[in-house]
């Protein structure tokens, strides 16, 4: 399990990085926690790795002065997980972070890497959808909703770098819920559901579809939680895989939706 040979560049500016990415078959290396296993398996063999870890100014969690947050793409999971500011503003994201991998992986893995890797069972992409994040790149700003095109497939161009995540403020009094079921601690979700309840409900399913998915039909049925949970089951199109069948995942979506909505409603009421 040794990776194929590659060249390595560690640019110190985004411009340099983008230029380097102009080369065919180059790949961005952030925390490496998803990319390197793939390289070790030789599932990927890029000829050039562009390590964006040495570009200054991509690692921050900042108040946007409007109640939201700006997070640098190279901010590590552990920083996100332990940020008080983030915990106050977006407790649902804080809660979801508890399910992401293990300490040593959270110490290295980055929010940008997770979002760009786009594993449908990863927590962060789903949370971006839930929180209506906007993803700022070296070329444009993309709504989280438009970012995911398929499993491990995003709207990013080959030479486009995600630089910042913008989380708009949650309306005061928004309640939230996050529920996950995994077979083993720290594993990717078998299925997870996040929900917020304010003026209206917002629900996102993780690990139950080829991308993270807004459950709009279920949202529309809120406050009838039972009906929403039933509808959620039909909205996702999971695959059968090693760890769970499509039927089981639908079942989980329904169960987790109910619990997430109940927590969210309770939080909203209080």
């Amino acid at each position: 399990m040794k990776p194929a040979a590659f060249e390595y560049l560690a640019p110190v500016s985004l411009a340099e990085a983008v230029a380097a990415l102009g080369r065919d078959d180059a790949k961005i290396l952030a925390g490496g926690q998803s990319l390197v296993p793939m390289l070790n398996f030789r599932l990927r063999a890029p000829s050039l790795l562009v390590d964006i870890g040495r570009i200054p100014g991509l690692d921050y969690i900042e108040d946007d002065r409007a109640g939201g947050l700006r997070i640098g793409a190279m901010t590590r999971h552990h920083t996100v997980e332990t940020s008080d500011l983030l915990r106050q503003r977006f407790p649902v994201l804080h809660a979801a972070m508890q399910y992401v991998a293990h300490l040593a992986i959270r110490n290295k893995g980055t929010i940008g890497g997770s979002l760009c890797h786009g594993d449908p069972a990863a927590e962060l992409p789903g949370l971006m959808l839930l929180l209506d994040a906007r993803l700022k790149t070296t070329q444009r700003t993309i709504a989280a909703e438009d970012f995911y095109e398929g499993a491990l497939d995003t709207a990013l161009a080959e030479d486009e770098i995600l630089t910042e995540i913008l989380l708009p403020p949650l309306p005061a009094g928004t309640g939230w819920g996050f529920e996950e079921f995994a077979r083993r601690s720290g594993d990717f979700a078998l299925t997870a559901v996040g929900a917020t309840v304010g003026e209206e409900a917002r629900i996102v399913a993780i690990g139950a579809h080829e991308t993270p998915l807004r459950l709009r039909a279920a949202e529309a049925l809120f406050p009838d939680i039972e009906a929403a949970a039933e509808a959620a089951r039909e909205e996702v199109s999971p695959n059968d895989d090693l760890h769970g069948s499509a039927d089981y995942r639908r079942h989980l979506v329904s169960v987790l939706t109910r619990h997430a909505l109940m927590s969210a409603r309770e939080g909203a009421a209080s």
């Binding site: 760890h243 039927d247 089981y248 079942h251």
Partner: peptide
Amino acid sequence: TPERLFRLVS
């Protein structure tokens, strides 16, 4: 597994 138990119960 939870999958098997789910199927048995269903």
